[in-house]
Amino acid sequence: MGDRHGTVFRTDDGRTAIRFERLLPHPPEQVWHAITDPTRLSAWFPAVVDLNQPAGTALYFGVTQEQRRRYGMADDPNRSPNGRVLRNEPPVVLEYEWSGEVLTWEIARTPTGSRLVFTNVLAEPDAAGPAAAGWEAGLEVVEAQLDGRAVSWDPLNRAEELAAAYE
């Protein structure tokens, strides 16, 4: 795919969403593992969470160590759920709510591996640019992990570099 950037669009109900598509030379089971394994998530996902839960399960998305260090963010001391699993159908669909947003990961088998489609329906339309830059940076890490390449860059710094493409 020539364009690695996400597409920002309006949903049928008028909300703002971001969509990314990647063709990956890996089977769906490996892609699923890359987007759900807590160890792998810790390298790129903007929260600490266990996504390996059945549909209907309440989720708590915690603050990462890097968010604490960089931004002084802190976890909710009560760890009140701020999300919920909507669909969990390995290795095809993972969908969850997180603080008013809906995130959907769809994986389809292709002749050469998988097609990953990620959609984030946003709670705040003004967040589209920064969110898209962050997800693109995260997807770069996912691809490196799948390919067995070392991640020699910081995804938060990379998101800042990519932000201009979404202004």
Rank of each mutant, 00 (worst) to 15 (best):
E136W: 08
A144F: 11
W153H: 04
L162Y: 07
A144N: 05
E140C: 14
A137S: 14
G148F: 03
S152I: 09
A163H: 12
E140A: 15
R158M: 08
P130K: 09
A159W: 09
V142A: 07
L156N: 14
A137C: 05
P130R: 08
L146Y: 12
A165T: 12
A164M: 05
V142S: 07
E160G: 15
L162P: 00
W153V: 11
L156H: 13
A133D: 11
L146D: 00
G138D: 09
Q145V: 08
P155S: 11
E143T: 14
A159Q: 09
V141H: 02
G148W: 08
Q145Y: 03
R149E: 05
P155D: 12
G129M: 11
E136Y: 03
G138C: 06
G129E: 05
E140V: 12
L156E: 15
A137Y: 02
E140P: 14
A132S: 12
A127K: 05
R149P: 02
E140K: 14
A137W: 01
A144Y: 09
V141P: 13
R158A: 02
Q145G: 06
W153T: 08
R149T: 14
E160L: 08
E136M: 06
A165P: 14
A128F: 01
A128C: 08
A131T: 07
A163V: 12
D126Q: 13
E136F: 02
P155H: 04
A163R: 12
L139I: 12
D147R: 12
L162N: 05
E136R: 03
R158V: 02
G138N: 05
P155N: 03
W135M: 06
E161P: 11
A144G: 13
R149C: 13
A165Q: 13
L156M: 14
W153D: 00
Q145W: 01
G134Y: 13
P130D: 07
D154I: 04
V151Y: 11
A133R: 11
D126Y: 08
L139R: 07
A164W: 02
D154L: 09
G148H: 05
R149L: 12
E161I: 07
A132I: 04
A163T: 14
G129R: 06
W153F: 11
R149Q: 01
L139T: 00
E140Y: 00
Q145I: 09
A127Q: 03
G129P: 03
G129V: 10
N157R: 15
E160V: 13
D154A: 10
V151E: 08
W135Q: 07
E143S: 09
E160D: 15
A144D: 15
V151I: 10
A165L: 07
A144T: 13
V142T: 08
A133G: 15
G148S: 01
N157T: 15
V141S: 07
A159I: 06
R158F: 06
V141D: 06
R158S: 03
L146G: 01
R149Y: 11
A133F: 03
V151C: 07
L139P: 11
L146N: 13
A127V: 10
A127M: 00
A127G: 00
G129D: 07
D147W: 07
D147M: 04
W135G: 04
A165M: 13
V142M: 05
